[in-house]
Amino acid sequence: MSGPTTESKLEKLLREGKFVVTAEIGPPKHASAEGIRRHAALLKDWVDAVNITDNQTAIVRLSSLAAGVHCLQMGVEPILQMTVRDRNRIALQSDLLGAYSLGIRNVLCLSGDHQSFGNHPTARNVFDIDSIQLIAMVKKMRDEKQFLCGEEIKEHEPRFFIGAVANPFADPFEFRVLRLEKKINAGAQFIQTQCIFDLERFDRWMAMVRERGLHKRAAILAGVTPLKSVGAARYMQQAVSGMIVPDDLIARLKKAADAKAEGVEICVEQIKYLRTVEGVAGIHIMAVMWEEIVPTILEKAGLRSRT
């Protein structure tokens, strides 16, 4: 992993060569942090850090920065997701300073789902900079002690451990690894992938990643999602952009007497397999609306409680 070290615990574990586990908390569509705190308490002893989504699928939610602080207060290390959809370079840099001042040490840079997917499809989007430019900006603030405009940050520059996402299931497939390389060149140090259901395609992608030595320059965390029902799997297959859910997985869920248990079983199998893939440094588990299942899955996958 390249780049100077930061105070991120996630970074420390990755540098020590530990197989890390990250999970995800989606802030609520209201102004109470109770659910965030409950989920943080639930995940605390099982995961190394938790992603806090940023108005996921362009639906207005409690801000990821505020939710990240609630997590910190619960003793869970947050990974602040930041999309470039809603904020320009001024607001993004301002929030980076604010987040750092509040104790947040990890940031995940994303484009963000287009606003047409969310609950305010008539909104104007920003996209002043793109996700790769955001990565470069966070790095510039840290390593060159400069704002994007080149002005010096005289003291207390924010020193984030920089993450990005990669989607092996989007197209053009052959360009996906090259774009990942662009992200790493821009400064990304850890990479979380889109949910993996098509292991064969993931393997092909990982082979290309290894061929270019990218797994040595950034820590690749393989994304998984437990499927709760046939309906949920169908939804992922059809309605979520950039996702591939193979039909035989859906068939397997359909056949099962207990779809939920089968969903857990599938996820556990995937994790066990992904752990063996060379260059995979950890697991990112996205149990959207099913956070309480995470400890069960990790236990079964042999990634025992951290305490």
Binding site: H114, S116, N125, F127, D130, S131, A170, D171, P172, G242
Partner: peptide, 20 residues
Amino acid sequence: AKSILNGPCGGSQNGKCEVN
């Protein structure tokens, strides 16, 4: 749809935009 200068985003599939 996102005016990305270093694309494509993760929503690009089968040559089509995630938006439509």
